[in-house]
Protein backbone atom coordinates (compact mmCIF):
# COMPACT_ATOMS: atom_id res chain seq x y z
CA UNK A 1 0.00 0.00 0.00
CA UNK A 2 2.76 2.38 1.04
CA UNK A 3 5.05 1.53 -1.88
CA UNK A 4 2.15 1.91 -4.32
CA UNK A 5 1.32 5.40 -3.06
CA UNK A 6 5.00 6.44 -3.19
CA UNK A 7 5.22 5.15 -6.74
CA UNK A 8 2.14 7.14 -7.66
CA UNK A 9 3.64 10.32 -6.13
CA UNK A 10 6.89 9.78 -8.06
CA UNK A 11 5.04 9.17 -11.33
CA UNK A 12 2.86 12.24 -10.93
CA UNK A 13 5.81 14.47 -10.06
CA UNK A 14 7.89 13.21 -12.96
CA UNK A 15 4.96 13.72 -15.29
CA UNK A 16 4.58 17.30 -14.07
CA UNK A 17 8.28 17.94 -14.60
CA UNK A 18 8.09 16.49 -18.11
CA UNK A 19 5.10 18.69 -19.00
CA UNK A 20 6.83 21.74 -17.54
CA UNK A 21 10.00 20.90 -19.47
CA UNK A 22 8.10 20.58 -22.76
CA UNK A 23 6.19 23.85 -22.24
CA UNK A 24 9.19 25.88 -21.08
CA UNK A 25 11.41 24.40 -23.80
CA UNK A 26 8.86 25.21 -26.49
CA UNK A 27 8.42 28.80 -25.27
CA UNK A 28 12.15 29.39 -25.01
CA UNK A 29 12.76 27.91 -28.47
CA UNK A 30 10.02 30.13 -29.96
CA UNK A 31 11.53 33.16 -28.23
CA UNK A 32 14.99 32.39 -29.66
CA UNK A 33 13.56 31.82 -33.15
CA UNK A 34 11.69 35.13 -32.85
CA UNK A 35 14.91 36.94 -31.82
CA UNK A 36 16.71 35.55 -34.86
CA UNK A 37 13.73 36.54 -37.02
CA UNK A 38 13.36 40.17 -35.91
CA UNK A 39 17.09 40.76 -35.18
CA UNK A 40 16.92 43.50 -32.55
CA UNK A 41 20.07 45.63 -32.45
CA UNK A 42 20.00 46.08 -28.68
CA UNK A 43 18.03 45.04 -25.60
CA UNK A 44 16.13 48.35 -25.75
CA UNK A 45 14.76 47.41 -29.16
CA UNK A 46 13.26 44.14 -27.96
CA UNK A 47 9.95 45.61 -26.60
CA UNK A 48 9.44 47.69 -29.78
CA UNK A 49 10.06 44.64 -31.96
CA UNK A 50 7.66 42.62 -29.81
CA UNK A 51 4.93 45.23 -30.25
CA UNK A 52 5.55 45.29 -33.99
CA UNK A 53 5.30 41.49 -34.14
CA UNK A 54 2.07 41.49 -32.14
CA UNK A 55 0.52 44.07 -34.50
CA UNK A 56 1.66 42.00 -37.46
CA UNK A 57 0.14 38.84 -36.03
CA UNK A 58 -3.09 40.68 -35.23
CA UNK A 59 -3.39 41.94 -38.82
CA UNK A 60 -2.64 38.48 -40.22
CA UNK A 61 -5.26 36.99 -37.93
CA UNK A 62 -7.79 39.59 -39.07
CA UNK A 63 -7.05 38.65 -42.67
CA UNK A 64 -7.41 34.96 -41.87
CA UNK A 65 -10.80 35.39 -40.20
CA UNK A 66 -11.99 38.00 -42.71
CA UNK A 67 -12.26 40.99 -40.36
CA UNK A 68 -9.36 42.99 -41.82
CA UNK A 69 -10.12 46.71 -42.23
CA UNK A 70 -7.97 49.61 -43.32
CA UNK A 71 -7.15 52.48 -40.96
CA UNK A 72 -9.80 55.04 -42.05
CA UNK A 73 -8.09 58.00 -40.37
CA UNK A 74 -4.82 57.34 -42.16
CA UNK A 75 -6.67 56.80 -45.43
CA UNK A 76 -8.42 60.18 -45.13
CA UNK A 77 -5.12 61.87 -44.34
CA UNK A 78 -3.64 60.21 -47.41
CA UNK A 79 -6.57 61.31 -49.56
CA UNK A 80 -6.23 64.91 -48.40
CA UNK A 81 -2.50 64.89 -49.24
CA UNK A 82 -3.28 63.27 -52.62
CA UNK A 83 -5.71 66.06 -53.51
CA UNK A 84 -3.08 68.64 -52.59
CA UNK A 85 -0.60 66.90 -54.97
CA UNK A 86 1.59 65.94 -52.02
CA UNK A 87 2.08 62.42 -53.35
CA UNK A 88 4.96 61.27 -51.11
CA UNK A 89 3.00 62.01 -47.93
CA UNK A 90 -0.14 60.59 -49.51
CA UNK A 91 1.57 57.27 -50.33
CA UNK A 92 3.06 57.07 -46.84
CA UNK A 93 -0.40 57.46 -45.29
CA UNK A 94 -2.00 55.02 -47.70
CA UNK A 95 0.72 52.44 -46.90
CA UNK A 96 0.06 52.89 -43.18
CA UNK A 97 -3.68 52.64 -43.73
CA UNK A 98 -3.33 49.33 -45.60
CA UNK A 99 -0.11 47.63 -44.42
CA UNK A 100 -1.15 44.26 -45.80
CA UNK A 101 -2.01 45.67 -49.26
CA UNK A 102 -5.41 44.04 -49.21
CA UNK A 103 -7.68 46.98 -50.03
CA UNK A 104 -8.19 47.63 -53.75
CA UNK A 105 -9.28 51.24 -53.28
CA UNK A 106 -6.19 52.21 -51.24
CA UNK A 107 -3.89 50.41 -53.65
CA UNK A 108 -5.60 52.16 -56.58
CA UNK A 109 -4.89 55.56 -54.99
CA UNK A 110 -1.24 54.57 -54.43
CA UNK A 111 -0.95 53.56 -58.09
CA UNK A 112 -2.68 56.77 -59.17
CA UNK A 113 -0.26 58.83 -57.05
CA UNK A 114 2.63 57.25 -58.98
CA UNK A 115 0.93 58.29 -62.24
CA UNK A 116 0.30 61.88 -61.20
CA UNK A 117 3.78 62.32 -59.70
CA UNK A 118 5.52 60.68 -62.64
CA UNK A 119 3.55 62.49 -65.34
CA UNK A 120 5.51 65.01 -67.39
CA UNK A 121 4.56 67.07 -70.38
CA UNK A 122 7.91 66.45 -72.06
CA UNK A 123 8.77 63.06 -70.56
CA UNK A 124 7.43 60.80 -67.83
CA UNK A 125 9.44 59.47 -64.87
CA UNK A 126 10.02 55.83 -65.86
CA UNK A 127 10.89 54.67 -62.33
CA UNK A 128 7.64 56.02 -60.88
CA UNK A 129 5.64 54.67 -63.80
CA UNK A 130 7.13 51.18 -63.29
CA UNK A 131 6.23 51.27 -59.59
CA UNK A 132 2.75 52.48 -60.53
CA UNK A 133 2.35 49.65 -63.04
CA UNK A 134 3.24 47.08 -60.38
CA UNK A 135 0.67 48.54 -57.99
CA UNK A 136 -1.97 48.63 -60.72
CA UNK A 137 -1.37 44.95 -61.38
CA UNK A 138 -1.86 44.25 -57.68
CA UNK A 139 -5.17 46.17 -57.77
CA UNK A 140 -6.29 44.00 -60.69
CA UNK A 141 -5.24 40.90 -58.74
CA UNK A 142 -7.26 42.06 -55.73
CA UNK A 143 -10.38 43.08 -57.64
CA UNK A 144 -10.42 43.05 -61.42
CA UNK A 145 -13.85 44.74 -61.52
CA UNK A 146 -12.77 47.63 -59.31
CA UNK A 147 -14.13 51.05 -60.29
CA UNK A 148 -13.37 54.21 -58.38
CA UNK A 149 -16.21 56.50 -57.34
CA UNK A 150 -13.96 59.56 -56.99
CA UNK A 151 -15.19 62.30 -59.34
CA UNK A 152 -11.74 63.98 -59.32
CA UNK A 153 -10.14 61.01 -61.05
CA UNK A 154 -10.46 60.77 -64.80
CA UNK A 155 -9.14 57.23 -64.89
CA UNK A 156 -11.73 55.23 -62.99
CA UNK A 157 -10.54 51.66 -63.47
CA UNK A 158 -7.16 49.93 -63.02
CA UNK A 159 -7.26 48.83 -66.68
CA UNK A 160 -7.31 52.46 -67.85
CA UNK A 161 -4.54 53.34 -65.44
CA UNK A 162 -2.50 50.36 -66.59
CA UNK A 163 -2.87 51.49 -70.18
CA UNK A 164 -1.59 54.96 -69.25
CA UNK A 165 1.47 53.48 -67.55
CA UNK A 166 2.24 51.12 -70.44
CA UNK A 167 1.86 53.87 -73.02
CA UNK A 168 3.99 56.20 -70.91
CA UNK A 169 6.79 53.63 -70.66
CA UNK A 170 6.91 52.91 -74.40
CA UNK A 171 9.19 54.95 -76.67
CA UNK A 172 7.29 55.68 -79.88
CA UNK A 173 7.38 58.28 -82.68
CA UNK A 174 4.52 60.15 -81.01
CA UNK A 175 6.83 60.89 -78.07
CA UNK A 176 8.65 63.36 -80.32
CA UNK A 177 5.47 65.19 -81.29
CA UNK A 178 5.86 68.82 -80.01
CA UNK A 179 2.12 69.06 -79.49
CA UNK A 180 2.51 66.51 -76.71
CA UNK A 181 3.34 69.34 -74.32
CA UNK A 182 -0.27 70.44 -74.54
CA UNK A 183 -1.71 67.22 -73.14
CA UNK A 184 -3.26 67.29 -69.69
CA UNK A 185 -2.69 65.09 -66.69
CA UNK A 186 -5.69 62.91 -65.99
Amino acid sequence: MYSKSVRQIITVKERHIQILGIVLGAFYAIFIAWLYWVEPKSLEQVPAKAQESIENVTTKTQIAIGTYEIDRAKFNEGLAAFRQDNFIVARDNFEKADPERRDAQTQFYIAYSFYRQGFGRVSNDDALFKSGLERTNSVIALDKNFKSGDANLQLKTPIELKNEFEEGLKVTASDFNPLKVLRERK
Binding site: V6, I9, I10, K13, E14, I17, Q18, L20, G21, I22, L24, G25, Y28
Partner: peptide, 18 residues
Amino acid sequence: EQRTTAAGSQIQYIFLPF
Protein backbone atom coordinates in the same frame (compact mmCIF):
# COMPACT_ATOMS: atom_id res chain seq x y z
CA GLU B 1 14.98 7.38 -4.34
CA GLN B 2 11.99 9.67 -4.71
CA ARG B 3 14.14 12.78 -4.16
CA THR B 4 16.84 11.51 -6.53
CA THR B 5 14.28 10.73 -9.22
CA ALA B 6 12.72 14.20 -8.90
CA ALA B 7 16.14 15.92 -8.98
CA GLY B 8 17.24 13.80 -11.95
CA SER B 9 14.03 14.62 -13.82
CA GLN B 10 14.45 18.33 -13.13
CA ILE B 11 18.00 18.28 -14.50
CA GLN B 12 17.00 16.17 -17.47
CA TYR B 13 13.77 17.85 -18.54
CA ILE B 14 14.18 21.46 -17.37
CA PHE B 15 17.83 22.32 -16.85
CA LEU B 16 19.26 20.50 -19.89
CA PRO B 17 16.85 21.99 -22.49
CA PHE B 18 17.42 25.41 -20.89
